[in-house]
Design a protein around this nucleic acid. Sequence first.
DNA 1: AAGTATATGAGAACTATTCGCATGTCAAGG
DNA 2: CCTTGACATGCGAATAGTTCTCATATACTT
Lengths: 216, 216
Amino acid sequence: MNRTLRMTHQREIILAELQRSKTHPTADELYERIKKKLPRVSLATVYRNLEILSEAGLIKKLEISGRQKRFDWDPGEHDHVYCVRCQRVDNIETDAPAPSVASAQEQGYRITGCRIEFFGLCPKCLQQQKNKPSKGERAMACPSCTTPTLSETQRQVLEALANTSEACGSKELAAATGLESKQVSCQLTALKNKGLVDSPIRCKYAITEQGKSILS
Amino acid sequence: MNRTLRMTHQREIILAELQRSKTHPTADELYERIKKKLPRVSLATVYRNLEILSEAGLIKKLEISGRQKRFDWDPGEHDHVYCVRCQRVDNIETDAPAPSVASAQEQGYRITGCRIEFFGLCPKCLQQQKNKPSKGERAMACPSCTTPTLSETQRQVLEALANTSEACGSKELAAATGLESKQVSCQLTALKNKGLVDSPIRCKYAITEQGKSILS
DNA sequence: AAGTATATGAGAACTATTCGCATGTCAAGG
DNA sequence: CCTTGACATGCGAATAGTTCTCATATACTT
Ligand SMILES: [Mn+2]
Ligand SMILES: [Mn+2]
Ligand SMILES: [Zn+2]
Ligand SMILES: [Zn+2]
């Protein structure tokens, strides 16, 4: 009736690799490390085994709010902190007793567990924040957007903007590019979001340094 | 500098629809309800506005461990319970004070918040569990698998199985279908996982009611 | 060693969410 | 009021993380 688990070579390596890690790696972080020992493993195997091992109670699967799953070599009860910026996860000890539920408030639930998680900035990210004057709210673009791709229209607009000596409105740009002014204004918004143009004064646009560099 | 938010018709409806819901709906649950009033809304608009509204502090986004996001009309501080079976989310009151961290244990983090969540079985699921003798572990197939699709080979095997009066091994099935016994055994596993066959005794297989119904 | 249950690799499929872009709408200012 | 630009929308495509499918390989049991 119960499936009998087998200790395959892959499973052994996956377990060992997790156990040697001090942090709380994601499946694909582990996958990268494991590939060095087992070049032919598949990511699916890593996921499968982490699932199986955690069902078997040998490790623990951490499902932290709204983020990638992480895995913990230590299956014992303990809580975690995570960094809202770099996603790092660490153990933490609370001094409060395990919170219990006002029994009248259970509303008929049979409660089987509780999870406590803290969040904030890890030491490293705290440091970085101090160095930067944190201009604006999206000072750092998302990592995958390091080289945003431009549509043909966007490139046209951006080039037109590069040729102006000072900030100009979308109407002038429409004339310069031969595009409709509606379209130009749309593209300016997109470009602004990508950080390639900004708007020094209302309704006037200028190319940013980043915008210049992407054209070259 | 700051974007000025506009109260559009869509945004208004989305907010109103969330506020009238006692539960903690997912974006697409809301989407389904909203489509009745605004047949042309887009799911992206629903997501966008839920995000914007929660940034504005009018509602709250609940990111509960490893599951779909949910949204709460009540932006005040409070904790939740969720049902591990049906995913329902309800409010809950703890009687303990908010847990704090042993200061020596912060490890250099600047902690900005904490989340507490309870989990278990909601009253409804508790009820259902009592009625069923809980045979096996995957009594209920996932909703999207209500009509599993069969590969050609699987159908062959299933039909052969339907023609036997009692449980039989993979070898007989291999003979009956003309397939290799290795293949048959693979497909039996797949069929078993789909709940279309089961294995009354080790290495013997029989078609289930569900299996019969899918053939007809 | 044979035979079966279980596991694997490879890639497709899936799901929840976000993005890109053309187009629509609102509100302020001429 | 009419234009204009910021803000929003609908739609489809893209993305990321994870799971599934199936042929094939491997580990137990006997
Ligand atoms: Mn841990
Ligand atoms: Mn709530
Ligand atoms: Zn960090
Ligand atoms: Zn439930």
